[in-house]
Structures are given as structure tokens and as C-alpha cells.
Computed example of a mutant assay.
Amino acid sequence: MTPPETPKDGFAAQGTRSPAVSVYVPDNSMNISDTARPEVITKRRDFLAAARARRQGTKGMMVQGRKRREDEPGGDVTRLGFTCSKKVGNAVARNRAKRRLREIARLILPSHGRPGWDYVLIGRADETARRPFEELKRDLIYALKKIHR
């Protein structure tokens, strides 16, 4: 299907595009470690195991972390889980809080996380969504240092 603003011959004049066309231009500054994603925890038993392990609360979130046993699957992969209870708010508020937690985890865990560990980030009511982003990053770094002691 052709968007209505596209010229009939299919070719736009130099420098113009129809609004439905998007062009992906890869950023050459990205490297493999920027695009690699840690494994996501989805099983309830893994969340429960993390809940029984070490935890550290901060103003913006609660972080649970546990070192996996040698006989557990996953090897040296860092695994992540995210959760927000209904105390955080409605679905929109919970999803916003989880998006912020995912982004800080993406930025901080490659340098401060450890392979073979499971981390669960839990959003806090009113704080996770409203706290300044730089402070959330500092909260996660602080919590990880305490958990790894």
C-alpha cells in the first residue's frame, strides 16, 4: 500500500519523503556490548529465589540480587527481572516505572553487574517514576555495591 502523499511514480523529489517512510541509519559508534541484552527472568521460581537472597533498598527502588549456584542453568549470564506492584499505580504508572528501571539497568549493569547473578529491580510507589534519572542511576550503583559485599 502506498501512502497518499507519495508521488504517483513512486519517486519523491530530492530531499523530500512521504511521512510514512522511515529510514534507519546505523550508528557506527555502537559496539556489540551496547546492543547485547542480559537474559530476562520470567519464571516465578527465579523471582522467589531472588526474594530469599540479598536485597538493598534505596529511595527509588528495591534491588534483590543473588549469585546462582554452579549447577543452575544460565552459566555466566547476568539475568534481570523487573516488577512493580499495584501500589505503584495503575497500569500506565507501573509500565512507566518499569521502562525507567529497564533503561537504568541497561546503562549500569554492564559495568557494575556481575556474571552469574540474578537481579530483580522493584519499583517504588511515587518514587521510581518521579525521581530524577541521574539519581536513579546512582541508586542502582549504590545498591549493587551493597549487594556484592
Rank of each mutant, 00 (worst) to 15 (best):
D126T: 13
G81T: 01
N28G: 09
R106C: 03
E70Q: 14
M1Q: 11
E134M: 10
H148T: 06
H148P: 01
D27M: 05
R94E: 07
L144H: 02
Q56H: 15
R17L: 13
I147H: 00
W117V: 00
T83C: 11
Q64D: 03
A51T: 12
R131T: 09
P132V: 11
P4I: 06
L107I: 09
L109Q: 03
E134H: 13
K59H: 14
Q56A: 11
K87M: 14
V88T: 10
R106F: 05
Y119S: 02
K43Q: 14
A12E: 08
G74L: 06
G123P: 03
E134S: 13
I141A: 07
A97M: 10
F11V: 13
V92Q: 07
G81V: 01
K146T: 05
D126R: 15
E103L: 12
I122T: 08
T83R: 10
K59F: 14
K87Q: 15
P7R: 08
R54W: 01
G116Y: 02
L121F: 03
E39V: 07
D9W: 08
R52I: 04
S29R: 15
G123F: 04
P73M: 08
E70V: 15
V92H: 13
G75L: 09
Y119Q: 01
T42Q: 06
R94F: 13
K87T: 14
S33C: 00
G15V: 06
S18L: 05
A53H: 04
E70M: 12
K137G: 04
R124D: 00
T2A: 12
V25F: 07
A91L: 11
A36F: 08
V21E: 14
I104H: 00
T58P: 06
R138Q: 15
T128N: 04
L109H: 02
A97F: 03
S111L: 12
S85F: 11
W117S: 00
S33M: 06
K8N: 05
P4L: 12
A12Y: 03
P115Y: 01
I32F: 12
R149N: 09
K59C: 05
A97L: 07
R149A: 06
S29Y: 05
G113E: 00
